[in-house]
Design a protein around this nucleic acid. Sequence first.
DNA 1: TTGAAAGCGGTACCAA
DNA 2: TTGGTACCGCTTTCAA
Lengths: 341, 341
Amino acid sequence: MEDAPHRPRPTLSSLSAAAGVSISTVSRALKGDARISARLRASIAALAQEAGYQPDILARAMSSGRTGLLGLVLGPATNPFYAALLEEVVQQAAARAMRLLILHAGPGPIEDRTAEALLQYRVDGCLVTSADMSSRAAEVCARSGVPVVMINRVPRLHASAASCDNEEGGREMARFLRAGGHRRAAVIHTGGASSNGLDRERGFTEAFAGRKAEVAARFDGRSTYEGGWAAGEAIAAMPQKRRPDCVFAVSDIIAMGAMDALRAAGLRVPKDISVTGFDSIPDAARPPYAITSYEQPVAAMVARGLDLLAARIARPDTPDEAVLLRGRLVIRRSARLPPAP
Amino acid sequence: MEDAPHRPRPTLSSLSAAAGVSISTVSRALKGDARISARLRASIAALAQEAGYQPDILARAMSSGRTGLLGLVLGPATNPFYAALLEEVVQQAAARAMRLLILHAGPGPIEDRTAEALLQYRVDGCLVTSADMSSRAAEVCARSGVPVVMINRVPRLHASAASCDNEEGGREMARFLRAGGHRRAAVIHTGGASSNGLDRERGFTEAFAGRKAEVAARFDGRSTYEGGWAAGEAIAAMPQKRRPDCVFAVSDIIAMGAMDALRAAGLRVPKDISVTGFDSIPDAARPPYAITSYEQPVAAMVARGLDLLAARIARPDTPDEAVLLRGRLVIRRSARLPPAP
DNA sequence: TTGAAAGCGGTACCAA
DNA sequence: TTGGTACCGCTTTCAA
């Protein structure tokens, strides 16, 4: 290939010179304005095509005020749930001709300096999927009128949200386990940090507790495999009489850790103890785990989240809105089944 | 909180009016230009601070030509290796005051429409960590002079790269297995798509084969857990006499699948057969796996990658460069150890 | 030490 | 149906 130093970028101005018409005409022709004659439009389009013209979004943003940029705050990508969310968001955003500016990925809150980028690049809106959007960042958005949508998060101050019906998910899991004859449950939660976890636990506890059934123990699983492992060890160490007959972990990654620890301690799953999770990440479906879980409707959550964002970008006065989507119980082999009817 | 409609964004112009000086003066004062008196600089800085001034990067880019934006092409985030890479890149880029525009995340090549975004947003450079940057996208970059750096990839046409010394990694693993007394190896590769995989396999094969030792079988692991599983099943199904005594998978995710399949077939790891991987992702370190692996120096790869990119952005004529970084053998329990010396 | 003014590449309003 | 022009916010050169 030639080492041709890249040609100067074609602009409206260079096109207008080539076409012998004004800049405004080229601009209108390219966006299909009906006021320009069909012939002229076609010839200008051909010219642009040939020159490899690409509109400069930055320049457009200068005058139109719209960047087409969405700020993205992602949770810890090492949890496969967020990885799946990321892929889904990238794909759906691209389909809507929106681009994502990554503000944060990983555990912990987003830095203040990062929150500033949000303003500096004039993002049209902000998508938050992480557990932690610092209140500083939230405030920045609110103050400067940047619409915020949370996915997989309860909405807060000046934000909309699309999430899974976590409480119902917890309830469904509880009903399933009770139907399977379980009487003593252990819940592994996330230490109170996340409202998702709290909702799941609340739904579970509410639906599980009852005649001759109780949530007998609670552990902090810190949303990590290691946290789940520690909880699993603690459960395995309980005297057999008091030991729970089932475990509900508020996320699959925790459930995996717990399951491995229980097995390492010599317990059989689900023979000695059932283990269930939440999210239904691909990892949890693998043969050694086959974890019964509650699947979050990730694609739908992302789609509705982008809808909400788009609506708020188009009409800033649109009132905030919270969308709750129902998930689906996915039965695998990690929990004893209810008797066949 | 008040529902105060967000104030208009402060600009150089509004600050200059407030300060009673010209726009140029404010601009220079804010960037610490020595020509502005210290007192004036301080008072303007205070004003800006109070008003919550944030420079408009887009406007700056219009005149300076530099956006501070890096295009990011990421591989399948569902492989924890890419998830780790993502977190590292986001963090290090932020530390350098560079922002990431996500162009692609997931398996498969990037779409043509996406490649255009790269131009439209005038990214200063492009970071590619995926196996597949379409040649169209590569061409777009080359033609418009956007520097490209590959991380974990062999450099191609008009691009620099920072990657792990894959061949050496393969060799080290081979030496380790041979020292452990292994004689018949199976290699699970990625089907030829990735040069990484090829390099690892080449290094391994070269160092393993020799007196009374050979690579006895090859399988396509498709870079996925499922691919590894299928290969594991195939290995387990081999007649015992011909069965390999060790497995080298070119990535941990493959190794995990293979290991699970081998165990499901009743083989013990490492007693009956040793299993090793590559990458040293956190998942591979978990107790049930404890996979002996070759760790890629992810942080260093990202750091050097960003260095290369920054250098090319600052001086476009900087020649392309390929950096090879050595990784580290991480010995765990999935492979028989060499006898203690 | 400070200010005025010309762009950067579009958009959109007002004329013609 | 088309052209002229002001403007978006900042950088930078040239004058003062």
